[in-house]
Each structure stands twice: as structure tokens, then as C-alpha cells.
Design a protein around this nucleic acid. Structure first.
Length: 215
DNA sequence: GCTAGGCAGGAACCCCTCCTCCCCT
């Protein structure tokens, strides 16, 4: 597929598929918890992922690890996420964890919420700052599904707003913990795709390309 | 009590720059 620039996005192509075609792909949905918002100044402290095959998320096929950030976790982040220094002190380094995450991902396409502006930038920052041997992986941003369903301008598209619109009960998910968030995201993605299918809307998801350690 | 960085998109203007908002932890 030919490469192109789309409004300064690193977009390689636009996949135009219907739902039946899309479910033939394997996806890995993932979520990060970090010590802040900036990929250059903040560190990853949790990674969780779940595999989606044939349009269904496999609860039994998950990846999870704490990450030792090599620095104290700011108190407001502990307050926000519930992740303490005790959780991460004995955890593996980020280089070790994202290598394992890369192995778990395999040849699947990644999906995360706000991936293009947040999660993938953290993974790319680790790869480049650590000078790890890298590979290019395709990914989607699940925020695109929400834009398609409800329109970009008229609604909010944060994960909380989406799950509220979908009527998903959050009680069963521990928010702001990567495991809880990725399960909630998986549920939301499953429902949004089904809604698009039932509405007969063609799924046009931008395909971005990011970096993971070479496996 | 402490809460940040940067993309994307729009406006204004003429293709860059500036501004504001979203969204993530």
C-alpha cells in the first residue's frame, strides 16, 4: 500500500473494509499507565494487552506487566492509578517489558485509545532512547471508531464518554489500571464495531505505523 | 497543595503561524 502524508499524520494507508473483512485480522489491544503525559519526561509503569481474533477478545490471552520506571512515581500518579513504588520496585525494566510485549504482539495490528497521540509515542520513545533494534508495526487508534459512529465535532471521545454512550457498566473494570482499562477498551471496541456493522457503515480506519523492539 | 506535553484542527490568511481544545497518565 502506497505511503502518504495526511494532515501531518504518519499515515501509510487508509484501510477501507467492511466488518466481515476486518474481523479476519488479528489485533492486540493495549493500554499503558505512565508517570505523566510527556513521552520525553515521563516513564511507563504498567502495560496490559489483550488479543482480539475474529472480532472477539480472548480474555485468556492477555499480557500484563508492571514496569520499573527507574524513578519515584509522583504521588498524584499513585493517587490517580493506584500504582505505588512498591508495585514497580521489583518489576523488570521497560526495555525488557516492551520486548516481551513485542513478542506477544507478533504480527498483529495494535489498537489503543488515543494511541496516535499517546501510547505509541511512549513506545517509540523507549525504542529510540534505548537504541533498541526496532521493527515497524501497524496500529489503529480506537478513537477513530468513535468519530465514525458519533461524529467528531458533536461528542466527546474519551474512553469514559464512549463507555457511557455504549451503556457499559464500569463497575467490573478497575479504571486507570492498565488491566482494567484494556478490558474496558476491548468491550467498547467490540460493541463499536458491531454497531458499525449493523449500521452498514464502511469502516475506514487510518492505519498508522509505530515502533516496537525487533523480535 | 501539588496536575504537565503535544498533537489536531480551525482561524486567518495564502501556506505558514497562532490559538484553542481534545485526549491520554
Amino acid at each position: 500500500m502506497a505511503g502518504l502524508f495526511y494532515k501531518n499524520c504518519f499515515v501509510i494507508g487508509i484501510i477501507v473494509l467492511n466488518f466481515k473483512a476486518m474481523v479476519d485480522f488479528d489485533y492486540v489491544l493495549f493500554d499503558l499507565e505512565t508517570t505523566g503525559l510527556s513521552p520525553t519526561n515521563s516513564k511507563i509503569i504498567q502495560i496490559a494487552a489483550i488479543r482480539m481474533i475474529n472480532g472477539r477478545c480472548l480474555d485468556s490471552d492477555m499480557f500484563f506487566s508492571y514496569v520499573n520506571p527507574g524513578c519515584p512515581i509522583p504521588p498524584w500518579i499513585t493517587h490517580f492509578t493506584g500504582i505505588t513504588n512498591k508495585h514497580v520496585n521489583s518489576a523488570p525494566t521497560v526495555q525488557e517489558v516492551i520486548l516481551q510485549f513485542s513478542k506477544f504482539t507478533g504480527n498483529s495490528t495494535l489498537i489503543a485509545h488515543n494511541a496516535h497521540r499517546f501510547d505509541m509515542r511512549f513506545l517509540e520513545a523507549v525504542c529510540t532512547q534505548s537504541r533498541l533494534p526496532i521493527r515497524v508495526v501497524p496500529y489503529h487508534d480506537s478513537i477513530s471508531l468513535s468519530w465514525m459512529l458519533w461524529g467528531r465535532q458533536n461528542h466527546r471521545h474519551g474512553l469514559d464518554a464512549i463507555v457511557a454512550r455504549l451503556g457499559i457498566a464500569c463497575d467490573n473494570y478497575k479504571r486507570h489500571d492498565a488491566r482494567g482499562d484494556v478490558l474496558l477498551l476491548a468491550k467498547a471496541v467490540e460493541i463499536m464495531w458491531k454497531k458499525l456493522e449493523h449500521a452498514g457503515m464502511p469502516v475506514r480506519l487510518p492505519v498508522y505505523h509505530g515502533l516496537l523492539p525487533r523480535i
